[in-house]
Design a protein around this nucleic acid. Structure first.
Length: 820
RNA sequence: GCGGAAGUGGUGGAAUGGCAGACACGCAGGCCUCAGAAGCCUGUGUCGCAAGACAUGAGGGUUCAACUCCCUCCUUCCGCACCA
């Protein structure tokens, strides 16, 4: 017989809702705990990834509540963005109508899972009382020169008809629709995130409770590299071409230099040279290739000679200047010095085009390198040769020495290069935050005055998904008076990338209805930083980097006094089916709602936590879910032995002591011991998000109770420990045990260390490291006595073969190893 | 290429350097039942009748003792990538 999960779950969901059971209040004498899960895009349906993410968070939140923390556990919706726009076009409705409907549906689904959200704090980024503050933040950045407009080659998605930030281009395709990204030259708004690059990199060191791989991905993305910018003077001219290298130790081996085809000096170099025509053709060809093609042709290194020469400053060698597609304009100076002997790309290029080579590092012990015998570049370490005054030095040390020497001599300058680019936020779409800027023919680019915020998104924009910003077609919106001179002006018609919205929502949750600023400083000072953040690894770079950037910006504004938003980060693993990610295209989706109908939310929660640790991938298994349901039913059957306490005494409120229990119900001491052991284990495991092993020990306790019996006191503790995972189930049991209050109002049980002490232990006896015998002995037996006992044991005789023990190792109360 | 993570039964997964495989799923046998479902009990790493031997990707090493620490290598997954 199954317990009636449907009835129970509905009952308690109503109860929590009516009581606003989880509204968070700052309480002075309580420690705060801000638990946040990445808020969802309102698609209308939750999927297993949401269920996993939010279940992990919910258990942590409820556990902290029971431990007496003042917990904030909010939920909201990342509601702007293209899918709503596309869906609206398809369904002939408006994005706001569509989005609100989806939000309502998702709220219902989230509530059906029994998550302990403070719904009073719900925010939706598409509401003007939220995006008003996007505009406010934008203006603050604009004032400080951190938001600026520039024309440049941008990533353009021909399918979404909008620009993309560098971070949104994945393997040359659009992060959302995977369409190949094109290059376009447009005037766009950028945020100067590069202003924060040092701090974004440096502060990663403070994030001790972030996963290693996220830190590595961020560091990689920021991409700091230390090197030297070296000045190559043109032959027969005073003009200088700077190149960037991280290997100044190879400078004496530079035999040519290579420029990116887009390099501005190239046309000047080739002018009037015999190579001009060929070079121009090449430049044209490369320009037409998109970045994707250019990056994917990884073997061929095409290039042409410019006909010009430059001079290597360290030894005055004259070297030819080439242009090639493997040199990128966006990185460094758009020019490199080529050292074919010690860089594989240069080696391939030199071989292809018959360019000269020179060895400047010899790998010490091995056979001497010769240019003739080389089949690939030697990129390892060794001793400097043919390197002037640096001959004989190990190249590792020479690297720094040569850099300093060049810096001093003026041949170049020590420099750090970064991979991080400024963040492009302009989007030519409708469903986003309007950028609060006005263009006046006389006064130029002007911010919308703060008192005129929000710049409201017009409700009736004609958007078809084609041809430019939909906002540009709304006359009422575009035409505006200049805030400075009153003349006819026009509004910016681009909207903001939605990553802007999610870069500070965690602050808004602290005071979601605040009217004076994005957030109330007092509230933020109490709740922030987020103690635990939980979400998918797919946000390791974009969202987390932007949020860190915004937090640092607010610190500089003086509205907060910390510089990192998320203390601890947990990235949950994906939910797989048959070894593959669940997706519509694969048709292997398991719908959470149908599972709730069949087994109940509590069973689903239990299964998803039991099947794997939170960080690892989880293989979906219908039978595993069934097993979880079986376990709950087993506990339910036990409870039927404990009718409601007629005296109305609060169970679970006293500490469980052996005496008390023996007196009352003659409980098997084994059960009491197991209880205390379980409390210890579960408390520690919950704190470390090891839910799978916590559940395993709860199952063990259940099995012990099942076999040996228990009283209400013991059973109550089991129910409390189970409550964060199966909250409806636990509330119901708790009530049926005769309690009047919600289980989440009571205190987390403590274990009695005295109860963990065993009287006897099983000691493992090994001979030469192999287990040969186990004996039960009283705890704390003296080593001498133990030795004596063991050596006298007849059962051990065959293994000892009358040989004398060379050594006897004793681990007290655990193990004896006899070495013969 | 660089960076990160991971390799343990039929499966998901446990193991502060100290009994490898907890807890489950599955499977097999039994009880209950008119029958099924549910429930309950027992068994279940491999080889072996057994005693026992062998087992944590491979190979070395440290140690009385290694899934765990060190070295070399292999495989898989993820991120970045003509980044100079």
């Amino acid at each position: 017989m199954f317990y009636d999960f449907k009835k129970i779950e509905e009952k308690w969901q109503k109860f929590w809702d009516k009581k606003a059971a989880f509204s968070a209040l700052p309480v002075k004498d309580k420690k705060k705990y801000y638990l946040l899960e990445m808020f969802p895009y309102p698609s209308g349906k939750i999927h297993m990834g949401h269920v996993r993410n939010y279940t992990i968070g919910d258990v942590a939140a409820r556990f902290k509540m029971l431990q007496g923390y003042s917990v904030m556990h909010p939920m909201g919706f990342d509601a702007f963005g293209q899918p709503a726009e596309n869906a609206a076009i398809k369904n002939k409705t408006k994005p706001q109508v569509w989005t609100r409907k989806c939000i309502q549906e998702m709220e219902i689904e989230l509530k059906r899972m029994g998550f302990s959200y403070d719904w009073n704090r719900e925010v939706s980024t598409c509401e003007s009382n939220y995006y008003k503050w996007n505009q406010w933040i934008f203006l603050k950045m604009f004032e400080r020169g951190l938001a600026y407009k520039k024309a440049s080659g941008v990533n353009w998605c021909p399918s979404c008809l909008t620009t993309l930030a560098n971070e949104e281009v994945i393997e040359g395709g659009c992060w959302r629709c995977h369409t190949k990204v094109e290059q376009k030259n447009l005037e766009q708004w950028y945020l100067r995130i590069t202003e924060y690059k040092e701090r974004l990199l440096e502060d990663l060191k403070e994030l001790k409770n972030w996963p290693e791989r996220v830190l590595a991905m961020q560091a990689n993305w920021i991409g700091r590299s230390q090197g030297v910018e070296i000045y190559f003077k043109l032959k027969d001219s005073e003009e200088v071409i700077p190149v960037f290298t991280t290997r100044p130790d190879t400078i004496f081996g530079a035999t040519y230099i290579v420029l990116a085809p887009e390099h501005q000096i190239v046309r000047e170099l080739i002018r009037g040279k015999p190579q001009e025509k060929k070079a121009l053709e090449f430049i044209e060809k490369v320009a037409q290739e998109s970045k994707v093609v250019r990056a994917s042709s990884d073997i061929k290194k095409e290039g042409v000679f410019t006909g010009a020469f430059a001079i290597n400053p360290v030894n005055n060698t004259v070297v030819p200047i080439w242009i090639a597609d493997y040199v990128l304009m966006e990185y460094g100076t758009g020019a490199i010095m080529a050292v074919p002997t010690h860089d594989q790309r240069d080696f391939l290029f030199a071989k292809e085009h018959g360019l000269s080579m020179k060895i400047v590092i010899q790998p010490g012990s091995r056979q001497l390198l010769t240019v003739e015998a080389m089949t690939e570049a030697y990129e390892g370490d060794g001793l400097q040769v043919d390197s002037g005054e640096f001959n004989g030095m190990p190249n590792q040390g020479a690297r720094q020495k040569i850099a300093e020497w060049m810096d001093k001599k003026g041949f170049g300058r020590i420099k750090t290069n970064w991979r991080l680019r400024d963040w492009l936020i302009s989007r030519q779409r409708y469903w986003g935050t309007p950028i609060p800027i006005i263009y006046c023919p006389k006064c130029g680019v002007l911010p919308v005055p703060y008192e005129n915020l929000p710049v409201v998104l017009p409700k009736d924009a004609p958007f078809t998904g084609e041809g430019g910003s939909p906002l540009g077609k709304v006359k009422k919106f575009v035409e505006v008076k200049c805030p400075k001179c009153g003349a006819k002006a026009r509004r910016e018609t681009d909207t903001m990338a939605t990553f802007f919205d999610s870069s500070w929502y965690f602050l808004r949750f602290c005071s979601p209805k605040f009217k004076e600023a994005p957030f109330d400083q007092k509230e933020a000072a109490y709740w922030m930083p987020v103690d635990q953040y939980i979400g998918g690894i797919e946000h390791a770079i974009l969202h987390l980097l932007y949020s860190r950037f915004f937090t640092k910006f607010f610190k500089d504004l003086g509205t907060i006094d910390f510089s990192e938003p998320f203390n601890r980060l947990l990235t949950q693993g994906m939910v797989l089916k048959d070894g593959e990610v669940m997706s519509k295209s694969r048709g292997n989706i398991v719908d959470p709602d149908s599972m709730i109908k069949k087994y109940g939310a509590d069973s689903l929660r239990l299964f998803i936590l039991f099947a794997a640790p939170p960080e690892t991938e989880l293989e979906w298994d219908d039978r595993g879910l069934e097993g979880a349901s079986k376990f709950l039913n087993r506990v339910w059957r036990i409870h039927e032995n404990f009718p409601a306490n007629p005296s109305g005494e609060q169970a679970g409120s006293r500490s469980v002591t052996e005496e008390a229990l023996r007196e009352k119900d003659k409980i098997d001491p084994k059960v009491i011991k197991c209880l205390h052991k379980t409390i210890k284990k579960v408390t520690a495991d919950y704190a470390e998000f090891k839910f799978n092993t916590a559940i395993a020990s709860l199952m063990e306790l259940t099995n012990v109770i099942y076999q040996s019996g228990a009283d209400k006191e013991v059973f109550s503790k089991l129910v409390i420990m189970l409550s964060p995972i199966a909250p409806h189930f636990a509330e119901e049991l708790w009530q049926s045990l005769g309690n009047k209050e919600s289980i989440f109002k009571i205190e987390w049980p403590a274990y009695d260390p005295k109860m963990l002490v065993e009287e006897s232990v099983t000691i493992v006896i090994q001979v030469n490291g192999k287990v040969r015998l186990k004996i039960d002995l009283p705890v704390g037996i003296a080593e001498d006595k133990l030795k004596e006992l063991v050596l006298a044991d007849d059962k051990l005789k065959p293994w000892l073969q009358d040989k004398p023990a060379r050594k006897i190792i004793i681990v007290p109360d655990k193990l004896v190893n006899i070495v013969i």
